[in-house]
Amino acid sequence: MEEITTLTGKQKRYLRSLGSTMDPVVQIGKTGMSASLLDSTKDALIARELIKVRVLQNCSEAPKEIIAQLAEAAGAELVQIIGRNGLLYKRNRNPEKNHKIELPS
C-alpha cells in the first residue's frame, strides 16, 4: 500500500479552493469500481495531483462510499465530498517531475 499523507486543515482549504473551479476528470457510472476506473484515476493523479471525481446518477453505490473506496484504492487523500462530487489529492512522488501544487505549510 502506498503512503498517504495527512493534510492539515489549512492545506485542505487551499485544495478545496483550487478544486472549486475544476471540472470532473473521472466519472463513476453503473459499473462502479473497476480496474479501468482505478487505473484512470491513478493516471490522472500522477498527471495533475488534484482531481475532481463525479458519481453519475446510474451508479448503484452511495457517492460518499464509492469516492472513499476510490481514494483508498488509489492511495490518495480524500479532500472533500459535496453531493455527487469528490476531490482527491496525491502528491507526485516522481523526482523527475516538479510538484504541480505547492501546499501551504
Rank of each mutant, 00 (worst) to 15 (best):
Met1Ala: 10
Met1Gly: 08
Met1Ile: 06
Glu2Tyr: 05
Glu3Lys: 12
Ile4Arg: 00
Ile4His: 01
Thr6Val: 13
Leu7Phe: 03
Thr8Asp: 06
Thr8Leu: 08
Thr8Cys: 05
Lys10Met: 14
Gln11Trp: 00
Tyr14Trp: 09
Arg16Cys: 07
Ser17Pro: 04
Ser17Glu: 15
Leu18Cys: 10
Leu18Glu: 07
Leu18Phe: 09
Leu18Gln: 12
Gly19Pro: 00
Gly19Ala: 08
Gly19Ser: 02
Met22Cys: 03
Met22His: 08
Met22Tyr: 09
Met22Thr: 07
Met22Arg: 12
Asp23Tyr: 10
Pro24Lys: 04
Pro24Gly: 05
Val25Tyr: 02
Val26Met: 06
Val26Asn: 03
Val26Gln: 01
Ile28His: 00
Ile28Tyr: 01
Gly29Trp: 04
Gly29Val: 02
Thr31Ala: 14
Thr31Lys: 15
Thr31Tyr: 11
Thr31Val: 13
Gly32Met: 03
Ser34Met: 06
Ser34Ile: 08
Ser34Leu: 08
Ala35Asp: 15
Ser36Ile: 11
Ser36Phe: 06
Ser36Asn: 14
Ser36Ala: 13
Leu37Val: 04
Leu38Val: 13
Asp39Leu: 15
Ser40Glu: 14
Ser40Arg: 11
Thr41Lys: 06
Asp43Tyr: 08
Ala44Tyr: 04
Ala44Asn: 08
Ala44Ile: 07
Leu45Ile: 03
Ile46Glu: 15
Ala47Thr: 05
Ala47Gly: 06
Ala47Ser: 15
Ala47Lys: 15
Arg48Met: 11
Leu50Thr: 04
Ile51Ala: 01
Ile51Thr: 02
Lys52Ala: 10
Lys52Phe: 03
Val53Asn: 02
Val53Cys: 05
Arg54His: 11
Val55His: 03
Leu56Ser: 13
Gln57Val: 10
Asn58Pro: 01
Asn58Phe: 08
Cys59Thr: 09
Ser60His: 08
Glu61Phe: 10
Glu61Asn: 09
Glu61Met: 11
Pro63Met: 05
Pro63Tyr: 07
Pro63Arg: 06
Glu65Gly: 10
Ile66Met: 07
Ile66Gln: 05
Ile67Lys: 01
Ala68Arg: 11
Ala68Trp: 00
Gln69Thr: 08
Gln69Arg: 15
Leu70Asp: 06
Ala71His: 00
Ala71Leu: 02
Ala71Lys: 00
Glu72Asp: 14
Ala73Gln: 13
Ala73Asn: 13
Ala74Lys: 00
Gly75Thr: 04
Gly75Lys: 07
Gly75Asn: 00
Ala76Cys: 03
Glu77Met: 03
Leu78Tyr: 02
Gln80Asn: 08
Ile81Leu: 09
Ile82Phe: 05
Ile82Val: 15
Gly83Asn: 08
Asn85Lys: 10
Leu87Cys: 02
Leu87Thr: 02
Leu88Met: 03
Tyr89Glu: 00
Lys90Cys: 02
Lys90Met: 06
Arg91Ser: 12
Arg91Met: 10
Asn92His: 03
Asn92Trp: 04
Arg93Glu: 15
Arg93Asn: 12
Asn94Ala: 12
Asn94Leu: 13
Pro95His: 07
Glu96Asn: 14
Glu96Ala: 15
Glu96Phe: 11
Glu96Met: 12
Lys97Phe: 14
Lys97Thr: 12
Lys97Asp: 14
Lys97Arg: 14
Asn98Gln: 12
His99Asp: 15
His99Ala: 12
His99Lys: 14
Lys100Asp: 05
Ile101Phe: 09
Leu103Gly: 07
Leu103Gln: 08
